[in-house]
Simulated scan of single mutants.
Amino acid sequence: MATAIGEKIRAQRKRLKLTLDQLAEKSGSSKSYIWELENRPVIRPSAEKIARIAEVFGVTVEFLLDDAKQEFAESDADKVFFRRVTQLDANKRAQLEKFLKAIDDE
Rank of each mutant, 00 (worst) to 15 (best):
residue 1 M to G: 10
residue 1 M to R: 12
residue 2 A to T: 08
residue 4 A to M: 13
residue 8 K to H: 08
residue 9 I to T: 03
residue 10 R to D: 03
residue 10 R to F: 04
residue 13 R to D: 03
residue 13 R to H: 03
residue 15 R to E: 11
residue 15 R to A: 13
residue 15 R to Y: 04
residue 18 L to M: 11
residue 20 L to K: 07
residue 21 D to P: 00
residue 21 D to M: 07
residue 24 A to R: 02
residue 26 K to A: 14
residue 27 S to I: 10
residue 28 G to N: 08
residue 29 S to P: 00
residue 29 S to A: 15
residue 30 S to C: 09
residue 30 S to V: 12
residue 31 K to T: 11
residue 32 S to G: 11
residue 33 Y to T: 12
residue 35 W to H: 14
residue 36 E to S: 12
residue 37 L to W: 02
residue 37 L to C: 04
residue 39 N to I: 05
residue 40 R to T: 06
residue 45 P to I: 09
residue 46 S to T: 12
residue 46 S to L: 08
residue 48 E to I: 11
residue 50 I to R: 01
residue 50 I to L: 15
residue 53 I to C: 05
residue 53 I to G: 03
residue 53 I to K: 01
residue 54 A to T: 04
residue 54 A to H: 01
residue 54 A to P: 03
residue 60 T to S: 15
residue 60 T to I: 07
residue 62 E to Q: 13
residue 62 E to P: 00
residue 63 F to M: 12
residue 64 L to E: 05
residue 66 D to W: 02
residue 67 D to Y: 02
residue 68 A to K: 15
residue 70 Q to T: 15
residue 72 F to I: 14
residue 73 A to Y: 08
residue 74 E to D: 13
residue 76 D to W: 00
residue 76 D to F: 01
residue 77 A to E: 10
residue 79 K to C: 05
residue 80 V to I: 10
residue 80 V to H: 12
residue 84 R to F: 03
residue 85 V to Y: 05
residue 86 T to W: 00
residue 86 T to P: 00
residue 88 L to F: 02
residue 89 D to M: 06
residue 90 A to G: 04
residue 90 A to W: 00
residue 90 A to T: 10
residue 91 N to L: 13
residue 92 K to S: 14
residue 97 E to M: 12
residue 100 L to H: 03
residue 102 A to H: 11
residue 103 I to R: 15
residue 103 I to G: 02
residue 104 D to I: 10
residue 104 D to C: 08
residue 105 D to P: 00
